[in-house]
Amino acid sequence: MPDLVAWRSRLARLQVLVAEADNALAGFIGFSTDGHIDLLYTAPEYARRGVASALYGETERRLSASGVRVLCTEASLVAAPFFSLQGFTVAAHQRISASARQRVSASCVAAWP
């Protein structure tokens, strides 16, 4: 069962953009105004159809317009190639333990002039 209080708290600190298609959630991105991308999700039925790219592109446009020059995220190993295509580089790998499960992620950074 998701911890709704924790999710509400996490989302309250973020700017969130939502993509819809055919009256369904296609994906969303959550980011802070300092350039940290906290969440990026695409519904499986909309994967590889440009949803994540569109959400990321709009996020980058907004942050760039506000003066942010460096973006960062902690990407799963599955998501790291997507961020690499957006110009991110892996700054470090990290192992995260949560609820007796471990996952490896990449701390990624992108900068532009």
Score class of each variant (00 low, 15 high):
residue 1 M to E: 14
residue 1 M to Q: 10
residue 2 P to Q: 07
residue 2 P to E: 11
residue 3 D to K: 03
residue 3 D to I: 00
residue 5 V to L: 14
residue 6 A to H: 10
residue 8 R to S: 15
residue 9 S to H: 10
residue 9 S to I: 04
residue 10 R to V: 14
residue 11 L to K: 02
residue 13 R to Y: 05
residue 15 Q to M: 14
residue 19 A to Q: 07
residue 20 E to Q: 15
residue 23 N to V: 05
residue 24 A to G: 05
residue 24 A to M: 13
residue 25 L to Y: 05
residue 26 A to P: 02
residue 26 A to I: 10
residue 26 A to K: 01
residue 30 G to T: 13
residue 33 T to L: 09
residue 34 D to A: 15
residue 38 D to L: 00
residue 40 L to F: 08
residue 41 Y to S: 08
residue 42 T to R: 05
residue 42 T to P: 05
residue 42 T to V: 09
residue 44 P to H: 09
residue 45 E to T: 14
residue 46 Y to N: 12
residue 46 Y to M: 11
residue 48 R to S: 09
residue 49 R to C: 10
residue 50 G to W: 00
residue 51 V to C: 05
residue 52 A to Q: 01
residue 52 A to W: 01
residue 54 A to Q: 15
residue 55 L to E: 00
residue 57 G to R: 05
residue 58 E to S: 03
residue 59 T to P: 09
residue 63 L to V: 08
residue 64 S to H: 15
residue 66 S to F: 05
residue 66 S to P: 01
residue 67 G to H: 06
residue 67 G to L: 06
residue 68 V to R: 01
residue 68 V to S: 04
residue 69 R to L: 06
residue 71 L to A: 11
residue 72 C to P: 00
residue 72 C to S: 13
residue 74 E to I: 07
residue 76 S to G: 09
residue 76 S to C: 01
residue 77 L to Q: 06
residue 77 L to R: 04
residue 78 V to L: 08
residue 78 V to Y: 10
residue 80 A to V: 02
residue 81 P to H: 05
residue 81 P to D: 07
residue 81 P to Y: 04
residue 83 F to E: 08
residue 83 F to I: 12
residue 84 S to Q: 02
residue 85 L to E: 12
residue 86 Q to A: 14
residue 88 F to T: 03
residue 90 V to H: 04
residue 90 V to C: 13
residue 90 V to A: 15
residue 91 A to L: 14
residue 91 A to I: 07
residue 92 A to E: 14
residue 93 H to L: 11
residue 95 R to F: 13
residue 95 R to K: 13
residue 96 I to L: 11
residue 97 S to H: 07
residue 97 S to P: 06
residue 99 S to H: 14
residue 99 S to P: 00
residue 100 A to K: 12
residue 101 R to V: 12
residue 102 Q to I: 15
residue 103 R to D: 13
residue 104 V to Y: 12
residue 104 V to H: 13
residue 104 V to G: 08
residue 104 V to E: 15
residue 106 A to T: 02
residue 107 S to R: 14
residue 107 S to M: 07
residue 109 V to Q: 01
residue 110 A to M: 13
residue 111 A to E: 13
residue 111 A to Y: 01
residue 112 W to G: 09
residue 113 P to F: 09
residue 113 P to W: 05
